[in-house]
Design a protein around this nucleic acid. Structure first.
Lengths: 110, 110
DNA sequence: CAATTTATTCTATATTGTATAGCTAATGTC
DNA sequence: GACATTAGCTATACAATATAGAATAAATTG
């Protein structure tokens, strides 16, 4: 465990997108998945910046695939989560869960 | 909803601490609650900086209480979460949940 | 090879995360 | 009441994360 042990808010979302996209995760699909699921709009630049950071930390790995026979289309960079990345997700989840334990939320707060 | 709609990772933890501490949340107890629950050590400065930001965004409010009759017992600044703050927590939770839906985690990833 | 398309990289800036040091207001002691 | 001691809060600074937009690259087609 290095200096910052918990995933940032957006890092968390991005890494979850990778997990659910499994073998077909690359910039564009990651963005789509996040937008489709959460309704949150994010720039493609934001996606890549985060992917790069996560890879640097060893939570992801990536490799370029073969270009697909579509109009245009340079080759995609596919990402997958490492075991270390999965640990980070779990750690982050546990932290929130421990703080949420026994709270009802949706409360009546002024 | 303004520019950044989701709580940052630490903001999230801090606001959850306030919710569970209810009427007795102030700098010191917030810090204790987080450390006790998550095992995560945070400086008191980090706590206040985050509380101040959350208050600026309207997610919290604070007021000073009466000084307590202890040695050094100066008055505490008590914090409570606003309705807007509760909404932010829920929004953040929903985002993660929508991304987690149907994932097993604890997976076998390389 | 120019135009078009899909995808990635670069760059720049705002917001968050985090620690340390310093300041204030209480109480206790002589 | 001057001064030490204590609990709690503020100020400041800097590193890391979030985010957008423009620029660049690599394919495909006529």
């Amino acid at each position: 465990m290095s200096s910052r042990d918990y995933l940032g808010e957006f890092e968390h979302i991005v890494i979850l997108a990778l997990l659910r996209l499994a073998g077909r995760a690359y910039g564009v699909t990651v963005r789509q998945e996040i937008e489709a699921r959460t309704g949150r709009e994010v720039s493609i630049g934001a996606i890549y910046a985060t992917l790069d950071r996560l890879e640097t930390k060893g939570y992801l790995k990536s490799q370029f695939g073969e270009p697909t026979p579509e109009r245009g289309g340079r080759s995609k960079r596919f990402f997958h989560v490492t075991a270390k990345g999965v640990s980070a997700v779990n750690r982050t989840h546990r932290a929130v869960q421990s703080m949420t334990q026994g709270l009802d939320l949706i409360g009546s707060h002024s």
